[in-house]
Structures are given as C-alpha cells and as structure tokens.
C-alpha cells in the first residue's frame, strides 16, 4: 500500500505580481517501509516538494494522500496534528533548541502530542531513543556541547519520538563531513530495515542517494525518473522537462 501518493501537484509562488511555478505537476508515490531518495539539482524544487509532503505547505493544486488521508485540503490545525503524529523531520541545519538539553530536544514533539503519556514514561522513551542513536551519555548536553554529527543524531531521535510513519530528511548530511555522513545514512538504513520506517531522503548528492532503495529524480519542478517503484523510467518525462527549460 502506498504511504504517500501525490497526483499532479503544482506549486506556484507569487512574487511581485508575477507567477513563479516551482512544481509543475508532480506525481509520485512512496510505499510503506520504503527508503526513497529525492534527488535533483539545487533549485529544482526538492525542498518545496518536501514541504508539501511534510504538510508544512499546501500545493497550489493537485492531490496529496498520506497514509490514506487526503491532506491537501486540511486546515493548519489538522496539518499540525498530522505532522505531529505521522511525520518526523530531519533538517540540514539540525534545528535543535539552543540552551536546551538533548533529552528535552528529543521530547519536544511529544509536548504537542495528545499527551496522556506520563512524563516519566516519556523521559524513559526519550533516553531509549538517544541510546539508539548512540548518545545515551549525552542526554543532558546542550547542542553547543555536541558535534555536528551528534546534533544530527539528536535530531533523528527527536524525529522518532512520536513513532511516525514517515521520516523526511532534507539534505541531512549537507552540514556534515563524509565520515559522519556515512554514520547518519547507515542509521537511516538501519531504521528503515529494522523498524520498517518509510524514509524520504532529499539530496543533490548521488552518493547519498545511493543509500536508498529507489531514487526519484526531480528536474526543474518535474519528476524526471523513479516516480513510482513499479513504473519503468518514463521516456517522455526528461524530454518534456528539457523542452520546458529551453522554453524559458
């Protein structure tokens, strides 16, 4: 069954009276438990697409089904609930709360959850997650006392705290050196294989993308290849995108 299913998603920004089309009719799907890389050049619309997939943004038009739910028509509160319950985010720049301990950072999403879990139990869960990412002894460290790789691992633990169905990682290794990048990517693979967690890895780096089971190529706001697992690379898509590019 498809966890993510988008159909003909268009995103157009309005800048000073003129329309800037960023996504030009994107259709794709991600199955449950799949690890997919979304790859494309800088400015091709990866982050824009990921924001829509992450329910942070709404498409200008098109349909988005997440876990069987139509998300594109939801109001901000409903989208916040979906983000909280079903999606974990990992950012390029970690985005940890400054002057706040690792464990508190990990537990941040749980403060916005339905909240019937006692805090002692939550803390235990948070510590388990930190252990899982190899930071059991750093629970009380603040971000400024952690290295980049450690910070990103705290961010991964945070993304997992509400047991999401989908993990969205936008350039998660963009600020890391190659060795720590390998560690982080190995952790993603591990999570995907052991927990069956669906992961969408956004990157411009083919090496990073190679850690995924499937690569979706995005080019200038259009899917160039790999939109559906079963689908063989569409012959027309790249040509179509190329012709548009020339048309500009």
């Amino acid at each position: 069954m498809n966890l993510i299913e988008i159909e003909n998603v268009v995103k157009t920004y309005h800048l000073g009276g003129s329309d800037v089309p960023v996504l030009k009719g994107v259709s794709m799907a991600v199955q449950q438990g799949e690890m997919v890389a979304l790859m494309g050049a800088s400015g091709s619309g990866k982050t824009t697409l990921m924001n829509i997939l992450g329910c942070l943004d709404r498409p200008t038009s098109g349909r988005y089904m997440l876990d069987g739910q139509e998300v594109s028509r939801m109001n901000p509160n409903q989208r916040a609930e979906v983000r909280n319950a079903k999606i974990g985010f990992v950012f390029q720049n970690f985005n940890l709360l400054p002057r706040t301990s690792a464990i508190e950072n990990v537990l941040l999403p749980s403060t916005y959850a339905d909240g019937s879990i006692p805090s002692a139990k939550l803390r235990r869960h948070g510590r388990q997650l930190l252990e899982r990412v190899g930071l059991a002894d750093r629970a009380d460290h603040e971000p400024s006392q952690l290295s980049g790789g450690q910070q990103q691992r705290v961010a991964i633990a945070r993304a997992l705290v509400n047991s999401p169905r989908l993990l969205l990682a936008d350039e998660p290794t963009g600020n890391l050196d190659s060795r720590t990048s390998e560690d982080v990517l190995a952790m993603f693979q591990n999570l995907n294989q052991q927990e069956g967690l669906a992961i969408l890895l956004v990157t411009h780096d083919a090496n990073v993308a190679s850690h995924a089971q499937r690569v979706i190529h995005i080019h200038d706001g259009m899917i160039a290849a790999g939109a559906f697992e079963s689908a063989s690379p569409a012959a027309s898509a790249p040509a179509d995108a190329a012709s548009r590019k020339e048309g500009r």
């Binding site: 916040a80 909280n84 985005n95 709360l97 916005y112």
Partner: peptide, 16 residues
Amino acid sequence: TREIGLRMAVGAKPRD
C-alpha cells in the same frame, strides 16, 4: 523565529 518554526514543524498548532 526559528524555534517557533521548529515547534510548528513538529506539531505545535498556532494556538499552542
């Protein structure tokens, strides 16, 4: 601002 953005991303509603 970034903290607010992060809180919203992980599920904080405007009223939170």
